[in-house]
Design a protein around this nucleic acid. Structure first.
Lengths: 203, 203
DNA sequence: TGAGGTTGTTACCGATCGGTAACAGTGGCG
DNA sequence: CGCCACTGTTACCGATCGGTAACAACCTCA
């Protein structure tokens, strides 16, 4: 009754050795949400696609909105892991970091499976302020802005806030454009545009 | 029985003196779709908000998808009327035209009621290729790209395709950013960024 | 062996989805 | 007046939405 070796504490169990049902559901939900949109995917569809049923779903998640919020937090975490991984090899060289970011961004966004940015898409779909996912989206985009501005400042660019915002607009625009254009869309020009902007700002 | 003065031909009636029900429904639908999103608004809500009922709705529109497509065509027409109106005063001066476009874009997108671009939002919500609205969105965004590139070429800019794409990314990014940021968001920097880009391309 | 926790299964809830049938009322115009 | 187009009303359809109750099967571990 006291301490067994595994899975006694629910909070520990949630992040550790939890068998698989919850993980399968979550993984399936992430893919469906990203590919088809949040509102377009129902709880039944998620559970079914994950090889289980709705009841098991609600044994693992309090509500669909809560799952959506968790999906968005997952996307957020992954994004910054991606960002940090791109930036790391060029530590202390903000200009090179920005270029690497845009090169990776173009590659990622041009890939066949890309449906833009899941968090940006959620910004379109989730309008209600009370939705638990809305705060995640806002925090994510605010952090992007902050980092781009910090990057511009580190480059010692003239008008770093303007440059940072401009870089962010380029990236966000690429995500959006990917939804209507196939691989050869305007996103392809993002890296070039970013370079031109940074040059012009003396960075 | 032959030609009376009004409303004998259904196709004429549809675009001319049709009393008001259809128009009220359509107007209401446009506002609700833009404010809350397409998937979030049901037929019942539209009809009710327009002061009528679902039956009258389906007497005027073949289906919700068809109404959505008409909404998007409406947004498309309005956009080009806006664009042409901004561009007209600076005929023959492509650089001034582009600047006027971005100034107006910033103003429009920063307004309190703005929810970005209805067509871009639809690009997120409508995933199915068969949806009658999807083609409208794709055509709209393709035309935007074409016009920006043409504008860049008219400026005699270096690498006009790249500049045109970059300007488009800036504008689209502004639409997207508006969904997460209040008035003072990154959109504010769009005009400045566009100027810098055009300068750098020798336009 | 026995107990507890995790699953699968089935049926159900009220609400809403997009869409339709049938009928009553109303207005304009010949 | 009488016709007819338009509108409102009500009730309904099958499907799906998010969410729950109750019970049987299972696996693990003591």
């Amino acid at each position: 009754m006291m301490n067994t070796v595994k899975s006694e504490d629910p909070t520990v169990a949630e992040q550790a050795g939890r068998p698989r049902v919850r993980d399968r559901i979550f993984e399936t939900a992430c893919e469906l949400f990203y590919r088809h949109g949040i509102r377009a995917v129902g709880v039944d569809a998620i559970a079914c696609e994950a090889g289980t049923n709705k009841m098991s779903f609600y044994r693992s998640f309090a509500s669909k909105d809560e799952l959506v919020a968790e999906y968005l937090r997952f996307k957020d975490r992954n994004f910054w892991i991606w960002w940090d991984g791109i930036v790391a090899p060029h530590q202390g060289q903000p200009r090179a970091q920005a270029e690497a970011l845009f090169e990776a961004h173009v590659n990622k966004t041009c890939s066949k499976e890309s449906r833009g940015c899941g968090l940006a898409n959620a910004a379109v779909e989730i309008v209600e302020d009370e939705h638990p996912g809305r705060a995640v989206v806002i925090a994510h985009k605010s952090e992007i802005r902050r980092r781009f501005r910090a990057l511009a400042k580190a480059m010692q660019a003239r008008e770093p806030e303007q440059l940072g915002d401009a870089l962010m607009l380029l990236m966000e625009g690429g995500y959006l454009a990917r939804l209507t254009f196939p691989k050869g869309g305007p996103v392809s020009s993002a890296l070039h545009a970013a370079r031109v902007l940074m040059d012009a700002h003396g960075a």
